[in-house]
Design a protein around this nucleic acid. Structure first.
Lengths: 124, 124, 124, 124
DNA sequence: GTGGTCTAGACCACC
DNA sequence: GTGGTCTAGACCACA
């Protein structure tokens, strides 16, 4: 049985895990993912917890449900996940970064220069 | 006795704690900070560990010492700490942010626009 | 077990000893130096003391370390040591020499002449 | 009783001590200095040792002897001592300094510049 | 094995 | 009292 960090909620961690497998290409669009009971057995977790994870993914249009058959990766799952991460990055992480910049006295000019340096380094 | 996380080393955590008190203005330039033995007793830690913390702060020109008297906050301690944090931010955190931007397809133009929005919101 | 003078601190004397072996060419750039425990056993000293010596050399970019493997002579170790010695000579010893010159009434003209005599003697 | 360093010979140290008192002006030209027995008692040393010290000072024309009366500071004692120190400085110490300069790559141009910096600092 | 860290206890020089 | 140093012995993460 794997260990979970406390702060984020087990069902969310499982949903993140599924998202990760989809983004990485391990699970492709249209493919069936493990059933609630399989997943619960694999992770040593109560099936209700898995149901909650899958429900949140359903709500996010990451997976689809066909009654009596199982759960499947949605067609645009990858794009949706990336878009969600982008939204979260822009709305959550970037403001924190900008806050730190203000506190440390890094202005936009310096940020642009640092980005140029970064781009050059990556292209080399 | 306070509890310490393991990954970062007790003496470094103590040094960070001292830096925090200096940056926050709790301990001002020129003021004496607790002696090695006092600090060790307060935190329930071996005096050698405190010595190590203070030594690292000494190396970083954050504090000064007078033998037989004690340790004192250096004159430019605040500025040095902020500068060190800025350097770490630029060299460690920003590259990670830029990496995420590339993976999520956020280009420099979009970053600039987001920064303008952020600035407007802050100034309002 | 070797004997140490008291005034300079055992760990500093050991660090000087290591510097000497590097400058003399006995230990070359990239080579592994004795492990903390080996060195401690050779010199009849506590391993912690060796760790302190190595740490100070690490801070001065004289040696590098790879966890679980050992300590190695840094690439530019020789040059750094010579440069450090030069700095110390200029900032510590030369002022003392100049002080003695003033007290004994030796002016710069005489110093120049003496240097010429010295150079001729060395070249002959 | 004072303690003596081993390397230099007790009688030489005593002679140096006398020279020091003369250079400093404590003992002036023409004045009588302590008798052999007085000096021996003061320093807790065998009178023969003092005799040897005084003999070396006599040889160097630093002091003079009047039979049955005592030892006196020679007329030109100060000048002779300073001249002797200057000679020793030029013949012993300066060559060592020049050797170190060569080993560390400090040329005469740099030495001149450093001397200028030193002079400015002293005059300020 | 390696280095990295921490504890416990000791002695010293300085003020 | 202060900091500075050293010893003895222990546990950990890494390789």
């Amino acid at each position: 049985m794997m260990e979970f960090k406390q702060p984020k909620g087990i069902y969310q961690q499982i949903a993140d895990q599924v998202r990760g497998r989809i983004v990485s290409g391990e699970w492709k669009a249209g493919e069936r993912i493990p059933s609630v009971r399989e997943m619960a057995a694999q992770l040593g977790v109560n099936p209700n917890t898995i149901t909650r994870s899958y429900q949140s993914l359903l709500d996010g249009n990451i997976i689809e449900n066909r009654r009596g058959i199982g759960y499947f990766v949605a067609n645009e799952a990858q794009e949706i996940i990336v878009q969600d991460m982008k939204t979260e990055f822009i709305e959550e992480e970037l403001p924190r970064v900008f806050d730190v910049m203000r506190q440390l006295g890094v202005d936009i000019q310096e940020l642009l220069k640092l980005y140029e340096d970064y781009s050059k380094e990556k292209s080399s």
